[in-house]
Every structure is written in C-alpha cells, then in structure tokens.
Design a protein around this nucleic acid. Structure first.
Length: 607
RNA sequence: GCGCCCGUAGCUCAACUGGAUAGAGCACCGGACUUCUAAUCCGGUUGUUGCAGGUUCAAGUCCUGCCGGGCGUGCCA
C-alpha cells in the first residue's frame, strides 16, 4: 500500500451544511472554463491590473485587426520593462512587416489612457502610470472579495480520504492541504463548493482487521489509543498470515459478514473502528483548518452498488471475462479493462467509485468534480471516467483527477504494513514545538506564545507543501519542512504580522482613500504590481488547480512588502506620506491574510 | 515489456502552456538594527536546463530516440 493519498471504503456521516440545493437540475455549460492568457472572464469585474489589461486589449485589437480575446498579453520577463508585454512576431507575420517595425509603429500610434507603450525590439511593452496604478490598487485591495469572482458554478472537491483504522501520515498531508486550498480558491471565485471526504472504510482489509481483533484485540489498548492499536493488529495480521492459513479464512468470512449488510457482530465492530478513527482524524482536520461538507466513506455507496450494476447492464457496457465482470475500454484507448465485479461476485474499488460518481452527479449536478488523489491512481481515474463515458455519461468530462506526487522519507519507503510511518500528528507537533522555540528566542515578551507557535508551526508545514508543483514527488526533509526563513510560510506570516504591527501602532484609523495621495506610492512599483496581480494568481491557481501559483505569488508580495517598509518609514513620516503608506501597509495586511487564508496558512497578528 | 510522471545553480524549487539576458530561496562571502518585529533587507558568487537529433523567426517548454529516478500495469484499495 503506497504512501500517498489512499482512498478506501464505507459508511458516511453527514455534518454541517445541509445538502445543497442546486439551481435548476443539470447545469449546462462547459465544465472547465478556460482563461487564456491574462484575459478577464466576463464573470469577473476588473480588479487590480486587470483594469489596464482591458484597456490595452481594447486599444490593440482594432489596431491589429484581431479579436481582443486572442491577444496574448504577457508579463515582461524583468521588472523595469513595463507591466504588460506583447510579443509582436505573430502579428507581423501576416502583414509582411517585421515584428520590430510593427512594435515601433504601434508604440507611436497607440494612445491608451494612463498607459505608456514602448517598443523594445520585437516586443511592445506597456507601463501603467504609477499614480493611477497606486490609486487602483489601494481601492481594490481593500476589498474582502479582492481576486474573487461571481461564478455560479458548482464544484465538488474530494480530498483527504484516509483509510480508517490507520494513522494519518505525511502522505495524507498533501491531499488534505491541497484539496482544502483548492476548495477555498474555487469558493473565492464564487463557485458553490462541496467538500467530500471519501473515507476508506470498506474492503477486504477490514475483514482482516476484524479477524485480527478477534484473535489479539485488547479493549484497554483500543480505548487508550485506538488507531495505534488497530495499526498494531493490522501489522500483526500481515506478519502472521503466511504461517497461519486459518487467518485468511477468518478474514474472508468476516468480510462476507460485513458485506452482507446485516446487523451482526462484525459490522458492529467495524462501525466502532470507524467512529474511533474519525474522532482521531477530526483532531488533525481541526488543526489543518480542513472542513468537509460530507464525510462519506465508500460504505456510504454500498446500497447503490446493485442499482449501479443493473444500470451498467442496461447500458450494455458489461462483459464477462475470465469469470469477472468488466467494462472494456479499448475503444477509449485504455488497454486495461475496468473490473466491476470479481469472479466471486464481490464489488471492487472501481465499482464503488462509479457508484459514487453517479450518485454525486444526480445529487449535485456539478460543473466540475475534482478528485485530489495521488498520481499513482492515474490509471484508476482514467478508467473510471472512460467507463462513465462508455455508459453514456456526458458529464464524465466534468470529472477531473487532480494528481500529486508521492511523499517519500529520506530514509526509505513508507509502509503501513510494516508499521513504519511518520504520523501526521507527530510532524505537526514537532513543527509547533520548534516554532515555540523560535518565538521564545525572538519575541520572548509576547503574550499568547502557545497559540502563535501553533499557527507558525502549522503554517510552515502547510505552506511548504503548497509551494511546490503538485506533480513532483517530495522527499520529506525535516530540515526543509521546518525552516522558518526564506521562502516559507513563517516568512509570509511574519510579513503579515509586521504590517499588522504598523497598523496597530499608528494610533489612528487607516485613512480612507479620499484622504491620501496615491501618487506618493509611485516610488514603489514592485509593491503595486505584486498586489495588482493577485487576482490573476488566484484565477490561474483555480484554472490549473494548482495552489502553488498562489503560493509563489504571495512570496512575491512578501518580498515587495519587506523591501517597502524596510526603506520607507511609515509612522512619523511627513503626514501625507504617513497616510498613504499606512494605507498601503493596511492593504498588504489584508491581501496577505486573504491569500494565506485561501491556502490554509494561519495569520497571527503577532509572532 | 508497455503506460504515465519527473530530470533546471552545490541543495530545494520557479519560469505566465513557444517569446526578451533562464529567476528565487537555502548554503557561502561582505554589508545594514538607539527609530513601525533582523523570522528582515542590500550587494556578491553559481548554469552544456539529463544526452542526441528534429520542428520554428524563437525551444527549459512541442516531436522522435536514448539515459537516469519514481509510480502504475484484470479479480487490493
């Protein structure tokens, strides 16, 4: 059993929000709206730099005779080259000119309010007037919905999905943290988000567990530390199964009792294991700020399996092969068929996922359904979606696997069966402990040190996970994960806390925009541009389902912020300067809190 | 065997899905705290983007073939 985001089985618990009502049945429209380049989709009011991108497009489109949405506006590679760039190569092609000449001509001809155009060889660079930009940024960044949108689509996010009776370990960190971040990011864009925890609570392994419990289980140990004891039983089972054929028979019969659906002792034991596990998981979820609208294990779909199989049969996609029931996927370009029933008649992982997908579609009519599950299951999801397509589900294209790389320990492979795991709780505790030491050293007089340490420690772990591309494997390195310097969560938390301190110590309210002169911020273009690009970062993170995009952008804002208040004294400066800088610091504080909040990184006001 | 993912500075990673001189952090060296938190800032050093071809005005990015690592590959989840 691999280290990363497993998903497994049954029995669901519903909590919190009521089952959402969907506006009018089958939602129409493309599952995934594409946001080409730096365009601003209609559902988003222009924010930050978007204002100017819109103007530039509007001016360029007629000049080039192309549709505004086809314009490829880019970020210049280096600061100082402007705020937007248009490579002119492709536009020069059709009209016989050379790109540099076209750029020069456009630079001379274009007249855009508050935007200067300059040719740089074949590139046309645009610079936004600093004072105008400052005014825009100060106005937009103060809003709590900065970078937000008005999409009315419905997005399902399935994430975390640990197996019951096993500890959550570092492998679960990624799915839990990435999934929660994606859910928040999509929600910020206005989407109606449904968070699902597809617990691994079903399957033959629970027959094994119950069998092991009957042989060696100890009530006292179970109550003291349920998951530790259950893991112990699981490990022991695998140690002894080879030498003891009776075990296998016991576990098979236990699983049959479980699957029978009848209320018997096996089922009661299993149910108790589930509840004990959930209590433990909840502690971690609370710390990580992860919430679910529905905790539905695989078992929740149990009574939907028979109808599903009947439906598949009716659709004519089932075949028998070597005694098993399969859906052939050759026509979908997948040589491995999807198995929905074993030769012994039991259902499989894929069967439950098919039932789950169909049930979710019928309940939520989603515009997209994201499965945040490790990339070792890529084939499984390809099969799942292909099988749905074969069964005639057009909505299968709205389902998307969001894979991520494996977490591996530097010392070697993680293995649940061998009992070698790094429990997530231990990782978090260690991070918090270290954060407490640093706070004690750097800010010994602060009140509420324990609370701050919890936030900083968790912030370090969460941000570390989110700042990398999902697809890359991660070699877990204590030193790196627990680093609080440089491009880290605590760096951003620190920046936020500094901004909070300045606002707090100002001894007066942040002046309203009408009372400041934004032009006085013209000396800090990096800061303005970094803040101004925040909406684009949120959008791109959602579009790619890649929180890293937002994390990386927050680092840019953080760097600009630190340089800003390092060189520009706020409090005690000339009154007009103090006013506008205070205003800027306030916006920084808000945007950092907003962005970090989307990622799930806590934002202490002092640390 | 076949399929998918990854390969960028000593280390950890970016690079806006084909654009400008490939950028950050860590580490190392040197500077900056009687003033809003030095968990910071400023400056310096670091590249055959795994290898070889190909497409293109333009390739880290696309196509082919290799090398290396990881993960999958019908009755587990």
């Amino acid at each position: 059993m691999a280290a990363a985001g497993q998903r497994a089985h049954r029995r669901a618990r519903r909590r919190d929000r009521p089952p959402a009502r969907l506006p009018g049945g089958a939602a129409a429209g493309a599952a995934l709206r594409r946001f080409p380049g730096m365009s601003t989709p209609a559902s988003f009011a222009p924010q930050g730099l978007d204002h100017y991108a819109g103007r530039i497009r509007a001016a360029l489109a007629p000049a080039l005779g192309v549709d505004a949405s086809d314009l490829q506006l880019e970020r210049p590679r280096h600061d100082g080259m402007g705020d937007f760039a248009l490579p002119c190569f492709r536009y020069a092609e059709g009209r016989g000119g050379n790109p540099a000449a076209l750029a020069a001509r456009l630079a001379a001809e274009l007249s855009i309010e508050q935007v200067a155009a300059a040719a740089a060889g074949p590139f046309l660079n645009f610079s936004v007037d600093r004072a105008a930009l400052a005014a825009t940024i100060l106005a937009d960044c103060g809003r709590p919905d900065f970078g937000g949108g008005a999409s009315e689509e419905t997005t399902l996010v399935e994430f975390s999905s640990p197996n019951i009776a096993k500890p959550m370990h570092v492998g679960h960190l990624r799915t839990t943290v990435i999934g929660a971040a994606l859910a928040r990011i999509h929600a910020h864009l206005g989407e109606r988000v449904v968070r699902l925890n597809h617990l691994g609570d079903w399957g033959s392994q629970f027959g094994k567990l119950v069998a092991a419990w009957r042989r060696w289980g100890a009530e006292a140990a179970l109550e003291a530390d349920p998951i530790a004891h259950l893991l112990e039983l699981y490990v022991r089972y695998h140690q002894e199964e080879g030498a003891d054929p009776g075990l296998d028979a016991e576990s098979k019969s236990a699983f049959q009792e479980l699957e029978s659906g009848q209320d018997n002792d096996t089922r009661r034991v299993w149910k108790r294991f589930t509840e004990l596990s959930l209590q433990e998981f909840d502690k971690v979820y609370r710390r990580l700020g992860s919430e679910f609208d529905f905790i539905r294990g695989e078992s929740w779909y149990e009574d939907k399996l028979a109808p599903l199989l009947a439906w598949l049969e009716q659709r004519g996609v089932l075949e028998e092969s070597e005694g098993a029931t399969i859906i052939d996927l050759e026509g979908e370009g997948i040589s491995t068929p999807c198995l929905v029933k074993t030769a012994h008649g039991t259902t499989l992982y894929a069967t439950r996922d098919l039932a789950a997908a169909k049930s979710r579609w019928e309940e939520f009519a989603f515009d997209r359904c994201l499965y945040v599950v490790g990339q070792e299951q890529i084939l499984h999801f390809r099969q799942l979606f292909a099988a749905l397509r074969r069964a005639g589900c057009g909505w299968a294209d709205r389902c998307q696997h969001i894979p991520f790389g494996l977490v591996r320990m530097a010392e070697g492979k993680l293995s649940t069966r061998e009992g070698r795991v790094l429990a997530l709780k231990d990782l978090l505790d260690r991070a918090v402990e270290l954060a407490a030491e640093v706070i004690q050293e750097k800010n010994p007089d602060m009140a509420g040190q324990a609370a701050a340490a919890e936030m900083v420690g968790l912030g370090a772990v969460i941000f570390h996970d989110l700042k990398h591309q999902r697809s890359k494997d991660v070699v877990f390195d204590w030193k790196e994960v627990l680093s609080f310097e440089g491009d880290t969560g605590p760096y951003l938390q620190y920046t936020h806390a500094r901004c909070c301190a300045i606002v707090r110590k100002a001894g007066r309210p942040v002046p309203p925009l009408s009372e400041v002169d934004p032009g006085l911020l013209a000396d800090s273009p990096e800061l303005l541009v970094a803040l101004g690009r925040f909406p684009q970062a949120v959008r791109e993170a959602a579009e790619k389902n890649e929180p890293m995009v937002l994390a990386q952008h927050l680092l840019k804002i953080g760097a600009a912020a630190n340089a800003f208040y390092r060189d520009r004294r706020v409090l005690g400066s000339e009154p007009p300067l103090e006013a506008v800088r205070l205003c800027a610091v306030d916006r920084l504080r808000r945007v950092l809190a907003l962005g970090l909040g989307l990622l799930g990184v806590p934002t202490p006001e002092e640390m």
